[in-house]
Design a protein around this nucleic acid. Sequence first.
DNA 1: CAAACGATTTTCT
DNA 2: GAAAATCGTTTGG
Length: 201
Amino acid sequence: MILTESFYRRENVVQIAKELLGKLLVTNFDGERTSGIIVETEAYAGVSDKASHAFGARRTKRTEVMYASGGIAYVYLCYGIHHLFNVVTNDKDVPHAVLIRAVEPVTGLDTMLHRRKKEVLLPALTAGPGAMSEALGIKTTHSGISLLSKEIFIEHTDTVIGESDIVCGPRVGVSYAQEDALLPYRFYIRGNRFVSRPKTG
DNA sequence: CAAACGATTTTCT
DNA sequence: GAAAATCGTTTGG
């Protein structure tokens, strides 16, 4: 069962980030279907969040898609190399988003290995926002695409994540955001091998 | 028009 | 553990 607009268009982006854990992210690009269970997310709370591209109601061509109604993808290029995938939430003109940082591979393993130029399945295949996007074939050209489309969507699974299996902590790579860098907006599934490791590896 | 800067990953020491 | 790779977006002149 696919997540619908009512899931994305809610107000509490932190709550949505937490609920996305255990859901299945599916892409259908180039006739290849790939998917994975979401195991790590981060919330970006729009205009009041210094770590967000939309902080202070900054509105540019790149961030414009975050101001649309929830239920679409926001993809941007980071460090000139990595395509980072976000889910836009809340209503129109409220630029909230959830960064999907890692998934556990489920469908299309061969396709993902090929895209990542890897031979064997290791957590590094999809652990981390840049790696995950590459494995699923997500690029900046997909920014603004609907998550209710056949090319990319998120669906419910039988995997139920209990409150005790969710770990929260500060976000990764946002030290420039000063006091907001400490907010517990990062969520991941306790003990999952495919969760990314900040710093030490 | 020029220049600095990342919501990162990989590779080398 | 440190550093390079690499480029679109944003900001300043």
